[in-house]
Structures are given as C-alpha cells and as structure tokens.
C-alpha cells in the first residue's frame, strides 16, 4: 500500500516537473517547482514507511524547511532581476 502511495506521489512529482519544463513565464515554473518540493517531502516520508526506516522522517523534516527557504531565495532573485525588465507574458 505504501508502494502505491509512493508511486502516486511520484506521478504527481513527474507532472509538476513536466509543467515546470513547459514554456511559460517564470512564476509558473517556480510554482511547479514549489509543488515538486512539497511532494518530495511527502514522498520521503512515505518511502520511510515503505522501507521501514523511520529515520527518513528527519530528512523529510529538514527538506520541508530547506524547500521553503529555497523558494523564497529564488523569488528574491527573480524579483530583483525582473525589477528592471518586463516579465515574459503569459503564453
């Protein structure tokens, strides 16, 4: 059952990655990457149960925090770069 959950989360992660690699504006991509990151946290947690190694939860916990800080950092960078230039238009 955990295998099914892991597989399902992997599918969601793959969809998010496809969305992020499609042409589009930069905010859509950050959104998809953010989703990929939070699903990674869930995946690590579920995988820890699948392999019966609850230590994985510590990694998931750390990853949840790192993901948040990473997204905010990327946003700051994009905000600064886009401060002068106009953004790519949607589609």
């Amino acid at each position: 059952m955990f295998a099914a959950a892991c597989l399902g989360i992997l599918v969601v992660m793959a969809l998010a990655l496809v969305r992020a690699s499609l042409p589009g504006n930069v905010y859509d991509r950050i959104l998809a990457i953010n989703m990929f990151g939070t699903k990674t946290v869930l995946f690590i947690a579920a995988y820890g149960f699948l392999t019966e190694r609850p230590d994985f939860l510590d990694i998931a916990l750390t990853y949840a925090l790192i993901n948040f800080i990473g997204i905010i950092a990327v946003l700051k960078l994009v905000e600064r770069v886009a401060g002068t230039a106009s953004p790519e238009t949607d589609e």
Binding site: N34, T38, D58, L61, A64, I71, I72, A82, P87
Partner: peptide, 28 residues
Amino acid sequence: KLAFILLFLWYTSPTASHALAKAALRAG
C-alpha cells in the same frame, strides 16, 4: 515528527504562495 512536518508545511506554504503571487503582481 509527522505532525511537525505537517505543521511546517502548513505554516510555510501560505507564505510561499503569498510571496509568489505578490512578486508576480509587482512584476506586472
């Protein structure tokens, strides 16, 4: 630990969404 992961996700995700939306709107 699982509860803490959920708590962190629920505390950080609205902040990330808000920052993303605000940055996009500011950028025009």
